[in-house]
Design a protein around this nucleic acid. Structure first.
Lengths: 213, 213
DNA sequence: TGACTTTAGTATCACCGTGATACTAAATCA
DNA sequence: TGATTTAGTATCACGGTGATACTAAAGTCA
């Protein structure tokens, strides 16, 4: 690369953590004591630390554990601050965890944070089509309805049950266990486990039906 | 966002410009007089300038015109330099333009640049599925074979001719003109023009056949 | 001139994934 | 017992894909 002077800036990291829960998407936005309102987690890399390592550290500090998926989404320069935005997916938090707000209420964090959340959700939806991340948001065994709800929460739309299961079966990504789980009313559901597979690179044709955004 | 101190760094912008040409992908890597070898274009934002504006300015300086598509791909922190990498797609350059090298020869730019080029190509392939960018790499009228070659160059694989045309027709994205072009030997090809359309958001099911990387 | 080559473009067909509809199965609830 | 709820399956029509093979129209070359 042809190096030139460069611009001196302050580097920061913002993080949008998303978690599917009961078919909805939650955003991690704990109360920020310093400002008396909710805010997305943020921080900055330390000397010698990579951006990814810094983001993972900030997540660990906030949640006490790692995200199932964490990746850069975009970088923004505002004044003399450059902010690298990461999006992450984590397992559903406890239902009474007050640090999480529904995705729909992200607007209450301000216009800037709202845009970050929108970008994060879009990125997360893309990961679903390219990685097995959804399986890592669930416990070791899970029902196919739980898996479908996870997809639906992140994609923001409902999926066809039979098609979802057919695609899953043909990909041989899950294996049934001998256990069933009864969840209140309704027929018990069989538990499945994720089967790591050599991904078959099924190259399909070109699509000309791109989306609005 | 919960603000903290931040890290002082130097901000730079690297740019990978790709151009499909004769079914191959070219990379813009002019000779860097200061270092006596080829290098990817680079620069830095000016005070008050956005990253996108800086990238567009660097492209204009290098090419004398805008890219058909230019977008952030990733940001890397190495020591005290944060580098934002942009990828761009531009129309095919003149065949004798020595500033371009074949994509396969990107390794000669060094391991770092090679990785940037790989990431840029991957990003560009993603744009093809989500935006009409390929149409803006061609002149106002073009043959369907030229369009297909553009896709093939960026995707790095050959496409089925009949399927390509069927998908194109059903999307109603191109309209035939009354002109034909004879290109040396072989039957002349009809010229088409791009028809901007309200994109029909055809939401398809979930795919479980993610790719290796 | 006429056969061959090259490129453009189309027709047919088997196959597969999708989504709609409708069904069965097994649990709880009133 | 019967209604409701959730799980799971069967069937069918439809549309997109890719293989194969064909026709069409130009240039090349003996």
């Amino acid at each position: 690369m042809a190096r030139s002077a460069g611009l001196r800036v302050t580097l920061a990291v913002d993080i949008v953590l998303l978690a599917p829960s009961r078919g909805r998407l939650g955003v991690y936005a704990p109360a920020d004591r310093a400002r008396g309102r909710r805010a997305l987690p943020a921080g900055a890399p330390r000397a010698g630390e990579s951006l990814e390592a810094a983001a993972a550290r900030i997540v660990r500090t906030a949640l006490g554990g790692n995200a199932a998926w964490l990746a850069q989404v975009a970088t923004r320069l505002e004044g003399t601050t450059a902010t690298v935005m990461f999006a992450g997916l984590v397992s559903a938090p406890a239902e009474d965890d007050a640090n999480w707000i529904p995705r729909e209420r992200a607007a209450s964090l301000g216009a800037s944070a709202r845009r970050l959340v929108d970008e994060a959700v879009e990125a997360a939806a893309g990961w679903l089509d390219r990685t097995p991340v959804a399986f890592h948001l669930l416990p070791a065994t899970f029902t196919l309805s739980e898996l479908q709800e996870t997809y639906e929460a992140i994609l923001g739309r409902s999926l066809h049950k039979a098609s979802f299961r057919r695609a899953l079966q043909s990909a041989r990504l899950v294996a049934p266990t001998r256990e069933w789980r009864s969840e209140g009313r309704g027929r018990p559901a069989q538990l499945y486990r994720f089967v790591q597979r050599a991904p078959k690179a099924s190259r399909r044709g070109v699509r000309f039906d791109w989306l609005s955004s």
